[in-house]
Structures are given as C-alpha cells and as structure tokens.
Amino acid sequence: MPRKIWSGSINFGLVTIPVGLYAATEDHTIQFHQYERGTTDRIRYKRVNERTGEEVGQGDIVKGREAGDGVITVEQGELDEIAPGRSRTIDISTFVDLGEIDPVHFQRTYWLAPTSGEHYRPYNLLRRAMQETGQAGIATFVLRGKQYLTAVRADEQALALNTLYFADEIRDPGELLDAPSDQASPTDKEIQMATTIIESMSGEWEPEAYEDTYTARVEELLAEKARGGEVAAASAPPQPTNVTDLTEALRRSVDEARKGRQPRAAEDLSALSKAELDDRAKQLGIKGRSKMKRAELEEAIASTPAKAS
C-alpha cells in the first residue's frame, strides 16, 4: 500500500471531499552509496554548525533568511499558520479544458483517494463529471512548505492531481533560439521528406512497450564487475547531421521508411544482450561477427541495412 503523503479535502462549489494524496509513480533508479576511493569506507554527511563545528540534531534546525546584519528565523508551525486553507484544502477555483494546458506546465502526478467509504459517492461524482466534460479543476494547495498550482483531472479509476509550474516559472524558449533565419528555415522538399518519415514511424501510444534499458545495463555492469569480467562499452552516439548532409540523410531515411522499416538510428541496440546481438548479426549476414566485441557488433549492425522480408 503506498504511503499517504498529505491529507486534507478537495473543494468544488459547496462540496467538500476528504482525500489523501499519494505518489502516482515510483523511482526505480539504482541507488548507490558513496565510498572513499580504494577503500570500503562509507562517506557520511552530517549537519554541522559552521561556527562551532559541532553536529546539530534535526529537531534543533529552523529555517531562516539573512536580513541586514542578522537572520530572521521561522518555525514550521508559523509557515503552516499562514498557508492558504491552513495547508489542508485543495480549492478548485475554475474548470478548464485539459487540452488547453501546455505540457511544459506539468511537474508531478499524484493520486487522490477518499479517506473513508462514506466519501466515495461525492468523490466519484466529481470524477465522473470531469470525465464527461473533459475538464480539469485548477486549484492551489500547500505541500511541504510550498504552494503549488495544480490541475485535478479524472483518470479511469481515480482522481489525479498534477502539480503545475506557475507562469513566471516557465522560461522563454525564444531566448535559446538565435540561429540566423536563412539557415534555420527548411525547404519545402525537406519538410515533405521529414513528414514522410514521421508518418512511417507513427503508431499507438503503448507505454508498456518501453523499458528502462539503462538501469538494466547498470545491473549488468555491476554483475560483470562482481564476476571480475570485462565491461563492454556501448556504441558511440551518432554524429550530428551537417547541414550539407541533411538532404541525403532525409533521402536515406525515406528509402528505409518506404521499405517498411524504421531508420536504424531509432533502434536502441544497447538494450540487447550479447546473444541477441549475435543473432541479429547472423540475420544480417555480417561476416566476422564471432570475433567481434559488443561495441563492434553494435556498430556493424547499426551500419548494415536490414534485409527486405
């Protein structure tokens, strides 16, 4: 059972629904400790008073900010006292079309669940009504000492809450794009070829089809080092496409697409095991494959056109 990280109520109109907030995702990143190089000695971090050098307990630490010649400190209770709704309400102020929210505003997703059986009816009423209208409720609430702008939306089984960035937290991408217009504008032919490639690679969104291959490779690395074996490096990333080579790269990609296969660059060969790479090399008729190391196999496979079926 996931741990509840916040409890309060969600309000719309005059309806108040007690709910709990739960993380909708979990991190599967491999966790490492830190050690001094050449030893098995763990590295630990302590909270230390910079003047006395003495360690300070968590209960003796308060938040503060420099002001003039001194420091103004605040207790967590004081922050809770001034929080909107005393940090325990999600007040929906308006409903908007979910599709109108630019994805750049989205931060994290949480699940909202009613805190008791008697609150399931109003909870499901709100979920079904938003599902019928395609609307999301915009609200603010305070979590862990920070106020968040949120979008409450209807999922198939539960209410989801997405924390959003405020407008002044979004950086203007125009500040990053300063390329001369004569170099930045593609030709009509290039656009047509790129469109053909995109259409040939289009498909349904199936999140189950994607896996965290890097974590698997890290596990493989650790297991190999534990056995004292040699760790094979992955193939180097493709080189950037030069402007002069752009049309040729597009033409080759279109040819691949018309033959019913994706461009080779779209495949992550690092996700395959050594045995699978050997099998792929055999199917492609790559000579000398039995003597190749992993990185050489990946490079050979990536540069060999697939045989037409």
Rank of each mutant, 00 (worst) to 15 (best):
G53Q: 09
S309H: 12
G99H: 14
I72P: 02
N242Q: 10
A233Q: 15
V254C: 03
P237S: 06
L177V: 15
Y214Q: 01
V71Y: 10
A136M: 02
A257C: 11
G137F: 01
K225V: 09
Q76P: 04
L112G: 01
T304N: 06
A234W: 01
I5W: 05
E54W: 11
A295C: 12
D212Q: 06
T195P: 01
I90D: 00
R144D: 08
T40S: 14
D60I: 05
R128V: 15
V218N: 00
G64W: 10
T52S: 13
A300Q: 03
I138N: 05
D178S: 11
L112M: 05
D182H: 10
T25H: 06
D69G: 11
E256D: 07
I301Q: 02
I72L: 06
R261H: 07
L297D: 00
T247D: 10
A160T: 06
A306C: 10
H105I: 07
S116I: 08
K146G: 04
A154N: 01
W6T: 04
P180W: 01
A184Q: 05
E224K: 09
R144I: 06
R289K: 06
Y210E: 10
I101D: 06
E81M: 10
E118D: 15
K293P: 14
Y110F: 10
K225E: 09
S87V: 08
K287R: 12
K146T: 10
L98E: 04
E54F: 11
T115K: 06
G288K: 04
K259Q: 14
Q58E: 13
